[in-house]
Nucleic acid binder design. Structure first.
Lengths: 203, 203
DNA sequence: TTTTGTTTTAAACAGCGTTTAAATTCATTA
DNA sequence: TAATGAATTTAAACGCTGTTTAAAACAAAA
């Protein structure tokens, strides 16, 4: 019994690694069991199926990585500062988990039809608080009136997409992993600048 | 013999549909054969393996969809107009092929290690012509001096990423497929505006 | 000691990608 | 017309996959 929690965790960790590295569909349950150093049948004992294990992992990953982001979106920070913090924290988080974007993208495609029921995925998106803030700042004239949906999609795109095309960027610019990290670091300043610039009132 | 080209094409078309819809790994060769209305063994007769068939399809998709984009990048158009045209054509192309982004993303992840040899993928990226144009316009003071790599990554992100998170956007904003198409249409004006705005000289 | 939860062993199922061998259809060409 | 050779089918096999099952072994708690 003492080992139970431990074993479950070992399966969970091994599967998480493999799912992120190779993708869910290219990872076999026998490979997970082997990396976790446990028996194949134990996978079925703890998680009923591979798909079940995947759901558990996906939910945990989303929860773990989105809590701080949501806290920032819902905070009382002034808009520009909120954007800066959000981008910083998001990019830092993805830098530590560079495979996360591809993983989530593949899930969004793989599970297109059951996205509505996958509650964990909601944490990727804007909160009502933040949406309201954008609209109200627009009304006050502090920023240009902006469609919050477009603005949030812009922000997500500029933050996340570069990680999805990492290998393309490295290959075409002939740079190393380290240099790509530097490139991403630069984006922590650049992206908020683009976003805030675009919000500035015209005329 | 008369049917040969036809049959090869039927396999190719069926596989393309399925790869885009379900992803390569979730599509079985038996399913392809069934949809193409041909025999399983014929798959091996025309394409030696599933991976081979995939390579052929991927190369063809990239070529078909990138030729016009590259032509625009290499044209003599004035920079702002070039950006506008590029974004327009790109978004139109993805609108007609909304699954293409997810497909390419999955390939970038799936085949991380052999990206360098996948020449077709190069067509997704900036050309030297365009890179030079950005640098020179910066020197002339027509635009703000800008890192072309960042600029191109920004542009690709704002164009492509929304398609990758389509289901998320639809779900969270509670909109239909048609309304999402409208949302994308708005981006044809919005994205060039953001990009060109950011290039404007400061002070 | 009995009970309970954990772990293993072993095997089976249908489906997968792949490959093979042989038989067959069929249009063209000799 | 008959022979040639490419196109297509049928049928089967290989090892691998996800999944499930049954039975046994083990450890610790009751």
């Amino acid at each position: 019994m003492a080992k139970s929690r431990n074993t479950e965790q070992k399966i969970f960790d091994a599967a998480t690694e493999l799912f992120l590295e190779k993708g869910v569909d290219r990872t076999s349950v026998r490979e997970i069991a082997s990396r976790a150093g446990i028996n194949l049948a134990l996978m079925n004992y703890y998680f009923r199926s591979k798909e079940n294990l995947f759901d558990a992992i996906f939910t945990a990953l989303m929860k773990k990585n989105s809590e701080e982001l949501i806290r920032i979106l819902n905070s009382d920070l002034e808009l520009n500062e909120k954007i800066r913090q959000y981008v910083h924290v998001y990019i830092d988080m993805l830098s530590e988990n560079p495979l996360l974007v591809s993983f989530v993208m593949s899930i969004l495609h793989r599970s297109r039809e059951r996205i509505t029921e996958m509650k964990a995925i909601n944490s990727l998106y804007a909160t009502d608080q933040f949406t309201r803030q954008i609209i109200e700042e627009g009304k006050k004239g502090n920023i240009r009136r902006t469609d919050p949906t477009h603005f949030f999609v812009d922000m997500l795109s500029l933050i996340a997409f570069p990680f999805a095309i990492k290998m393309l960027v490295m290959d075409k610019n002939n740079i190393t992993e380290k240099e790509f990290q530097g490139f991403i670091l630069e984006r922590k300043e650049r992206v908020p600048e683009i976003l805030i610039d675009n919000l500035r009132p015209r005329r």
